[in-house]
Nucleic acid binder design. Structure first.
Length: 194
DNA sequence: GTCCTGATCCTCT
DNA sequence: GAGGATCAGGACG
């Protein structure tokens, strides 16, 4: 199967708008990573919005060295280290100066599945969870700040999803736990949690 | 400086 | 279902 990658890359303007809208519209889009060890592609099936003024958002208490890419121009990757072991991958949204982002929580593996298996050292649950997909896609801290509209790691438009979008509360947080800022594709088997 | 917490996942029981 | 792995940031003093 072939993808016309560079025709379909989502433009920066896609990310510049309302973060909740971007989070919903990212469902069905394709995350593409062309690395030295091969191409991996996954369809985004689950995402969470993190907003300015939202206590769960890393940027809620202003800019620090860690979160500064969230305040930069939209369409860049914000990759951060959690729990001493794992990385999570976010897409920076909203205008420059506003610290908002969308956490990608799950992908449906499409291309490079053998490579994902070898990176994950398992054959199931390759991309169903934020740290899992980062591992399967070969994303690392070196991608923090990477431009997602050009380069080896990009987001491309996919087919509009046939599934309905379900809204729920976010996973794994305490502050802001009641906010309906998690979105996933109904019935999709690759979502991390129902 | 020290302490604590965390947008997680894996391996047991 | 529970606990461990493992470390950077942020809050405090």
């Amino acid at each position: 199967m072939e993808y016309c990658l560079y025709k379909k890359v989502l433009p920066r303007s896609f990310y510049a708008g309302d973060t909740v809208t971007v989070a919903r519209e990212l469902l069905g889009a394709l995350l593409v990573h062309e690395s030295s060890s091969g191409l991996t592609v996954g369809r985004i099936v689950e995402a969470e919005a993190y907003l300015q003024g939202d206590p769960a958002c890393h940027a809620s208490r202003g800019m620090t060295r860690r979160n500064r890419v969230m305040f930069g121009p939209p369409g860049h990757a914000y990759v951060y280290f959690v729990y001493g072991m794992y990385y999570c991958f976010n897409v920076v949204t909203a205008a420059e100066g506003i610290g908002e982002a969308v956490l990608i929580r799950a992908l449906e593996p499409l291309e490079g599945i053998p490579l994902m298996c070898s990176r994950r050292r398992r054959r199931t649950e390759l991309c169903s969870g934020p740290a899992r997909l980062v591992q399967a896609m070969g994303i690392g801290k070196e991608h923090n700040g990477a431009d997602l509209t050009a380069g080896s790691l990009v987001v491309c438009a996919g087919e509009p999803p046939a599934e309905e979008i379900v809204t729920s509360t976010r996973v794994g947080i305490r502050a802001g736990a009641d906010l309906p800022l998690r979105f996933y594709l109904s019935g999709n088997n690759f979502v991390s949690r129902k």
